[in-house]
Design a protein around this nucleic acid. Structure first.
Lengths: 248, 248
DNA sequence: ACAAAAGTGTTTTAACTACACCCATGG
DNA sequence: CCATGGGTGTAGTTAAAACACTTTTGT
């Protein structure tokens, strides 16, 4: 994954540059059927940290933007393309990687729930619960922890939840997403109202059939969808979600 | 500033990597005495974009962390050290720089008001009003715009305002900072209360003398001060300011 | 008809806005 | 003593939390 060069030499003119991606998806937990947060990791096939699990990543191609590289990580490991993709942070600590100095620009991605179910798994690609991970290669545990924090944070005033869902969904499904990510129960009544207050959602004429009870109405998200980190070709992140604490 | 190598060859194994820094400081505006937002730029002394103004920056040293490099940018241009320093974003668009492909990891910094007044200026280093800049080199206009957005955003629920101020300050000074950054007037009465509600501030026994009117009380900031982007040596940003929209 | 989720209404609480008002000091 | 910024009080508004309640379906 990472071009790890000859171990031993550390003083080098240019530090290595790699792109890695934290890929989140909601999948039914093994115990209860409730959806929980998972992410795919790849087993390292070379030194350093041979055979340990690590975030998918690799060097930056000459002709791809940073986000393109991240999307390629995702395609290479899962065969899928992300519903949501945003830069997380650039990690450049001196001792992140034994051997060559390595700077990693890390992205994080969200996959649509039903599509994520199609993700390929193999001997060297496996899904893990985001909450309790074993020891990963490099500083990847810390990176995942930070990505989780960002996800939860963004969840609280964002419209990113819909990126886990298909084109239509019930309000209860949205709530399930929130509960899975934030890891706590939410009041259905209040949650519904808050969502409806957000104008970015609109009811359809359809209802989800096949449930055990009263069929819930299906809704559709109407916000400008991948409105995050848009003009990445021009390299500037978007400035959506302006929080306000106005005064006077 | 930027290692701009031989123009002409673009296909190269490793893209160039540079660190740049957006440095904000509050200085008295030329017109009114009111403080406004300024930032120092450096004039480019080589191609590309010769003689244009640009963000201070340079290559990453072998032995310095990303934030160290940003702090060094700051010291090289202003002779000062930042009160606040945080990673902004990694810019890696394909056409940011004519010639070699260049990835810039950009930091942003805040300077303490009175210390910023000591900053060196020269033929090739000059301060500009953050709000109306001429055309800068590379994509630096966009970068500054994004940094401004982040600053204003963070201002609204953060404790970063104190980084513009000295160890003690009046509440009106804090308000001046907010007004300068957010660019709108704030109600003094309500502002005071909101600040006091934030427990991170504590009154001293002293009062600021020499004003034209009733002497205002001086306060001290008590929050964990540079609590942002702390363990950068270990490369992981901090997870302070958790916003909450709790539910149930 | 009954269980359970879908969906609505209502009370309480907290936070913020707007603005009137008093206080203390320099001129 | 008066102009001005420092500082306090308070009514009105808005949003959210808590929870009781009604509706609609499958079994």
């Amino acid at each position: 994954m990472f071009t790890s060069a000859n171990v031993s030499e550390r003083r080098q003119a240019t530090p290595g540059l790699a792109i890695s991606t934290v890929i989140f998806a909601l999948r039914p937990s093994t115990g209860s059927g409730r959806p929980t947060l998972w992410l795919p990791l790849v087993r390292r096939v070379r030194q350093p940290h041979l055979k340990m699990w690590a975030l998918p990543g690799g060097p930056l191609g000459h002709d791809e933007s940073l986000s393109d590289a991240a999307a390629r990580n995702l395609a290479d490991t899962t065969g899928l393309s992300p519903r949501y993709l945003e830069q997380l942070y650039a990690f450049g600590g001196l001792d992140r990687s034994p051997g060559q100095r390595l700077v990693s620009i890390v992205y994080w991605a969200l996959l649509q729930q039903d599509i994520a179910a199609l993700a390929q798994e193999s001997e060297n690609v496996r899904w893990f619960r985001a909450d309790d991970l074993d020891e990963l290669a490099f500083d990847h545990n810390e990176i995942v922890r930070y990505a989780l924090w960002r996800l939860r944070n963004k969840m609280e005033y964002g419209s990113i939840a819909y990126n886990f869902l298909g084109p239509t969904f019930t309000l209860a499904q949205v709530r399930e997403v929130y509960e899975a990510v934030l890891n706590r129960p939410l009041d259905p009544a209040n949650f519904r109202r808050q969502l409806r207050a957000t104008v970015d959602i609109e009811p359809t004429d359809e209802f989800l059939q096949g449930g055990r009870h009263r069929p819930p109405r299906l809704y559709r998200y109407t916000g400008s969808d991948p409105a995050e980190t848009p003009s990445d070709t021009n390299s500037v992140p978007s400035t959506t979600e302006s929080e306000h604490r106005s005064n006077s």
